[in-house]
Design a protein around this nucleic acid. Structure first.
Ligand code: ZN
Ligand code: ZN
Ligand code: ZN
Ligand code: ZN
Lengths: 136, 136
DNA sequence: AGCATAGTGTTATATTATAACATAAAATAT
DNA sequence: ATATTTTATGTTATAATATAACACTATGCT
């Protein structure tokens, strides 16, 4: 069976549900405190679920924020080749889905000619709605 | 005076010296323990110096590793538009200096037409020397 | 049934980073 | 040259993020 279709364990479901219920990325300990009523008690249970969900491409980690966000393209084909835009004003994060960009980066070779297996790209700027507000 | 040429404070010099003395990225608490004989006592002193050095473009933070590395192009013009290659085998990190890539990314616009002020890009793969070793 | 793999629950602890406050040094302006 | 502002320092305590280690349970496979 395809890794993508593997069914989720109880803790994995709980954690994924919470992450998917949030528009913005969430922190591990925020996840923990929100799933405690549902039977998850301690950090390792959350971090284990996070690790697996990342492997499956269901969620991504925003490295610059130590936070976690649901994959917006259902399950990323390549969980280690991802790009985000991050608003410096409101911390909103959105996943960039641009095949031209993906191809450019996956084809990129460094000065030694090394081609990479994956990448993590985080763009920073002001999101459209924050821009609007500032103009007013 | 240009921000780039601002002279460094005592703690900033100590921290920068240590980072520049290492080929691989170093962790904040490793910096701390190595500069303690030289008069820095506590984490905030290290983190403050790190913050300033990042602002100045003298060092960069490797977000996926919570580690810090000296800028390899002396002082980055744009400390918030940086790219690295990271070896999944030996954790070696090297700064990518590719003007075509930089231009591509700084000119990139998302699906809303938003152009970004900066980015952080981390490529993952196997470095050339690790590749060699595996072949033998 | 027997075995291997993956998931759980738990305690303790390691690692990374910041808050808060008092003081000192430096740069800038009058 | 001195008052003012800005930047840096030193210190203690604590917050926030993440993992080690170990005992146990559930699931899937042969
Ligand atoms: Zn995705
Ligand atoms: Zn915004
Ligand atoms: Zn640089
Ligand atoms: Zn390597």
């Amino acid at each position: 069976m395809n890794k993508k279709n593997k069914s989720l364990s109880k803790n994995q479901k709980l954690v994924l549900d919470f992450i998917q219920g949030n528009k913005k990325p969430v922190k591990a300990y925020s996840i923990l405190s929100n799933v405690q009523k549902k039977g998850i008690n301690a950090p390792p249970q959350v971090y284990r679920a996070l690790d697996k969900l990342i492997e499956m491409g269901k969620i991504h980690k925003i490295e610059s924020q130590n936070s976690f966000v649901a994959c917006s393209t259902s399950d990323c084909e390549t969980p280690h080749a991802i790009a985000f835009s991050i608003c410096n004003n409101c911390d909103e994060v959105s996943e960039i889905n641009d095949s031209k960009l993906f191809k450019y980066l996956l084809d990129f070779r460094d000065s030694n000619g090394v081609k990479f297996a994956g990448y993590n790209l985080e763009f920073f700027g002001i999101c459209k709605s924050c821009e609007q507000i500032q103009k007013v």
